[in-house]
Amino acid sequence: MDGRRRKVPEEQIVYANILYYGGIVGIIFMAITFAIYVSGNLPAYVAPSELPELWIHDTHEYLEKTGIPTGWGWIGLVTYGDILNLVALAFLGVITIVCYIAVIPILVRKRDFIYVIFAVAEVVILLLAASGLLQAGH
């Protein structure tokens, strides 16, 4: 386009494009799954009518009363409307990981090895967070 555009490095443009399309898909996915959930088109694992009595308690008690599994255990319950919403939210968490993976080959090609290390380390950190291995509790 003009000089301004050329000053933005290639990896930044690639990152921005994935973030753009990922963000749009993620937000639409989130809105659709929420509409499915609240319309009652899919059964809910925890009935919405029970939630006002549950969300006043901390996570530990909530999990104990509902039996919702932690970590990635919920992935086996995606046929339930409320759990399907978690898939949409998890998708938002995947976008940044994909962006980082996509810029690694560009950084390698530029022989920008310090930033390759930063990118790989960030992917590892995000995958660790996403793995469900890190559990906390009251």
Partner: peptide
């Protein structure tokens, strides 16, 4: 956000 999600601290509603 991943930590909160995997610990069951995210209620979609």
């Amino acid at each position: 956000a991943w930590v909160y999600l995997n610990n069951g601290s995210v209620i979609p509603l």
